[in-house]
């Protein structure tokens, strides 16, 4: 998922971590990774599969919005 790393370069607020799911089974279990790619933003918003850039941005904005 390249969008995450491009967003990290675009903003000092954004950090992108790519995790190889099979090498980190505990982390994958903790985040209930069933299918890949799986994206988790601020441990709050998550989705599976590739999405268009505007939807990815929507998820980022949702993750930082007030609850």
């Amino acid at each position: 998922m390249r969008l995450a790393q491009h967003m990290a370069v675009a903003s000092e607020r954004v950090r992108s971590t790519a995790i190889e799911a099979t090498e980190f089974p505990e982390l994958s279990r903790a985040y209930q990774v069933m299918g890949v790619p799986k994206v988790v933003i601020n441990d709050r918003v998550q989705f599976e599969g590739a999405v268009p850039e505007k939807d990815f941005l929507g998820a980022v904005l949702q993750a930082v919005s007030e609850p």
């Binding site: 950090r15 799986k38 988790v40």
Partner: peptide, 8 residues
């Protein structure tokens, strides 16, 4: 801050 984790 935004922390994005991408599992693959």
């Amino acid at each position: 801050d935004v922390d994005i984790k991408v599992f693959s």
